[in-house]
Write a protein that binds this DNA or RNA. Sequence first.
DNA 1: GTCTATAACTCGATAGAC
DNA 2: GTCTATCGAGTTATAGAC
Lengths: 211, 211
Amino acid sequence: MSSSTAARRGYHHGDLRARLVSEGIALLAEAGVAGFSVAKVAVRAGVSSAAPYRHFPDREALLAACAATLTADLADALARAAELAGPDPVDRLAATAGAYTRYALERRAGLDLIHSRDFPAEHRPVVQEQSRRLTDILMALTSAVLPEDASWADIADLAYVHLSTTHGYATLLPRNSRPPRDIDGIAALAVTVARDHLTGHLQRLRGHGAP
Amino acid sequence: MSSSTAARRGYHHGDLRARLVSEGIALLAEAGVAGFSVAKVAVRAGVSSAAPYRHFPDREALLAACAATLTADLADALARAAELAGPDPVDRLAATAGAYTRYALERRAGLDLIHSRDFPAEHRPVVQEQSRRLTDILMALTSAVLPEDASWADIADLAYVHLSTTHGYATLLPRNSRPPRDIDGIAALAVTVARDHLTGHLQRLRGHGAP
DNA sequence: GTCTATAACTCGATAGAC
DNA sequence: GTCTATCGAGTTATAGAC
């Protein structure tokens, strides 16, 4: 990388673009999507309010870059958690709930950005590429949980339910739990909740009782 | 009420305060918390941008009033759904997930306001009074599901997990489901998901197998 | 109790110097 | 590639007329 030489001359950084994305994610975590502004990100990065516009055409482009990075990191975290969980399909899918929760506790409102924003067509591809990766990972883990004759719609439904309920748990519960638990306890409960749901789901598929 | 006489003279309404809350909730549903402004609410209500400040000291007070109304309505909806669900405790608690989902589909970002905002101490009591009502309703329904020897912490945990996962399902999934299902289908799936989770939860409490 | 008018502020985005 | 300076729009909130 030539960032060390670039950082030498002038005031500017080696890689302001990456720095802006990183500070943007940090600002999202602290102030939420509502508190996000290009000016604040610029102050955080130690540059003028005009500097970001040399790297991003407008505010939406910076937000989209943050969302793409967040989504990619999240997909990595979920894949890693599933890998560490061992061979059992239910264990592997449930483990992603713990990783999602840890990620949400760190990035906070950043996760809302991933799901809530519909970006202008210009910047959509970059975000959706990573979003697609995340979906693919979840779909693969989910299909391993369900019987082989499960339809694609069944798999997609369960994957989305797993993702959305986990999202709710990870974003809503930490705000209300008093006194705040430790991160490990919150994440462990997320795994338990996911496993409980999968247990009940599979039991219902088998016809409520014995085979 | 003297609202009819007050509506007679001048331009003003019979009950501008209530109208502002109602339009505020509608604006929250359409534009989200980020798009909320006192000025827009005033335009919607057909009054000047200064008029709201005769009824609310500042922006936060109007937001708090909207949040209190939203929470009270939600508590009513959950209690009503449980009542209609019949005698079985699991049915009753699971039914609240359907009502919550229907409510979320109508009010949208308004529900985020209930959970995400931490209001200044001045306006907190009004919101928390309704929030407490909602919590009490959920706790009562949850304690009926669990064994009699369940601790208060166990009950609170399950109630919060039920609420937060339902919130996630109700707010996240409708945005991603393509093509969008009908409201009845989304709400019915919410009940199924809640029941699956409760089934798995109770089964784990009984020791994974037969008694 | 609502109006008009305005102050003070922040934001997004651009122009031009260096 | 970053700076200073600025414009225009939109926001909260207040002052004073009616």
